[in-house]
């Protein structure tokens, strides 16, 4: 058995201590996935595991056996930018760029969660599909820290893509 990473099968590491983030960065040189704290406290290592956003720093690579991992490198089609990547550029959703891949992966999952009508802590009526709003995006992105203070641009970029998809 193996892990499917961006569509390619990758062998499991021999050492179970290797986290998914370590596997991506050290062994596969997929360094778009960042490690900011290695403690689950910042979200820089966010990847999609079977489409759901998870922290690759707290996921043991062996736990991903038989599952599908998508990283920032696998988000876009061929040489195109993913709409979120383009929107992050258009809205200045970054400065140093270190938290950016994690923000974008989290945002991709967020848009899917919103489309599925899943609630958040700030959703007024959790029995109904959550509305699209800046506040909803802020709450749902709160697991991705940014120290440069690009938050307004990040929220604007996600809103832009959400509105494009809704149109």
């Amino acid at each position: 058995m193996a892990i499917s990473i961006n569509g390619r099968d990758v062998a499991l590491p021999d050492d179970p201590r290797v986290s998914l983030a370590d596997l991506l960065r050290d062994d596969l040189h997929l360094t778009g996935t960042k490690i900011g704290c290695n403690q689950g406290g910042c979200g820089a290592c966010t990847v999609l595991l079977d489409g759901a956003r998870v922290l690759s720093c707290l996921t043991l690579a062996v736990q991903a056996e038989g599952r599908r991992v998508t990283t920032i490198e696998g988000l876009a089609e061929a040489d195109q930018l993913h709409p979120l990547q383009a929107a992050f550029i258009a809205q200045d959703g970054f400065q140093c760029g270190y938290c950016t891949p994690g923000q974008i992966c989290a945002a991709e999952a967020l848009l899917r969660e919103l489309a599925e009508g899943l609630p958040s802590y700030v959703t007024a009526d959790i029995t109904a599909p959550a509305p699209l709003s800046a506040e909803e995006i802020r709450e749902r992105m709160s697991g991705n820290l940014c120290r440069c203070g690009a938050h307004p641009g990040i929220v604007a970029a996600i809103l832009q893509v959400a509105e494009e998809r809704a149109a």
């Binding site: 360094t31 996935t33 920032i72 490198e73 930018l81 550029i89 970054f94 400065q95 891949p101």
Partner: peptide, 21 residues
Amino acid sequence: LGHLDGPLKVTGAARFAAEVP
């Protein structure tokens, strides 16, 4: 003018100090 290195940063292609193979 947007950051000229934007495409590298949003695609994860920008290599930081711990990422040089």
